[in-house]
Amino acid sequence: MEKINYRKVKGRPVYRTASRLLDLGLSSLGLALFSPLFLYLAIKIKLEDGGPVLYSQTRLGQGGQTFKIWKFRSMIEGADKMKKDLLEKNEIAGAMFKIKDDPRVTKIGKMMRRHSLDELPQLVNVLKGEMALIGPRPPLPEEARQYSAYDWQRLLVKPGCSGLWQVECRNEGDFDQMVQLDIKYINQRSLWLDLRLIFKTLGLLFKPTGM
Rank of each mutant, 00 (worst) to 15 (best):
P141H: 10
T201N: 05
L33A: 15
F67Q: 02
L41H: 00
V105Q: 03
G160V: 13
A132H: 12
N90D: 09
L86S: 05
M82V: 08
C161Q: 09
M111G: 03
T58Q: 07
P103I: 12
Q153S: 05
L54T: 01
K107V: 11
R189M: 15
G61L: 04
I134P: 07
N187V: 05
I69N: 07
E130M: 06
K44V: 10
L37G: 09
L155E: 01
W70D: 02
S35T: 06
Y40S: 11
I99P: 08
A132L: 08
K207Y: 10
E91G: 09
K81C: 12
G51S: 01
W165L: 00
S116K: 14
Y185P: 12
L54H: 09
L127I: 14
L60W: 00
K100A: 15
G109H: 01
Y147W: 13
D174N: 14
I45D: 07
A149K: 13
E119T: 05
W152S: 12
K81H: 13
D85C: 08
K83Q: 15
Q122A: 06
S28K: 07
E119N: 00
L87Y: 06
N171T: 09
N187H: 11
F67P: 01
L39H: 14
S162P: 02
T209H: 08
Q177E: 15
P139W: 15
S190L: 09
P103F: 07
M178C: 05
D182L: 11
K68F: 13
I186A: 10
A93D: 11
S56F: 12
L86R: 00
S162A: 06
A149L: 14
K83N: 12
D101F: 11
M96V: 15
E48N: 08
L117C: 11
R20A: 11
P36A: 04
P13F: 10
G160Y: 13
T106W: 02
N187T: 04
L133Q: 11
R114C: 03
E119G: 04
F38V: 05
L181C: 03
R114V: 09
G135I: 00
L24T: 04
R114W: 01
L127Q: 00
T201L: 13
L133C: 11
L37D: 01
L41T: 05
S74P: 06
G160L: 11
P121S: 07
G129Q: 01
L29T: 13
K46V: 02
M178A: 01
P13C: 03
P208I: 03
T106P: 06
Q57T: 03
L120F: 04
R73T: 12
A93G: 08
M211S: 15
L39P: 07
V179C: 08
P208T: 04
E130Q: 14
G135A: 00
E2K: 08
I99K: 06
P208C: 08
K110L: 14
G78F: 10
P159V: 10
Q180N: 14
L127R: 01
K71V: 00
F72T: 08
T17F: 15
M131V: 02
Q65M: 13
K128N: 04
I134K: 00
G25L: 14
G25E: 10
A42L: 00
I92V: 15
E77F: 03
I99H: 09
G64Y: 06
I183A: 05
A18S: 11
I134W: 10
W70A: 04
A95T: 08
Q188V: 11
C161W: 02
K3R: 15
G109A: 02
F72D: 07
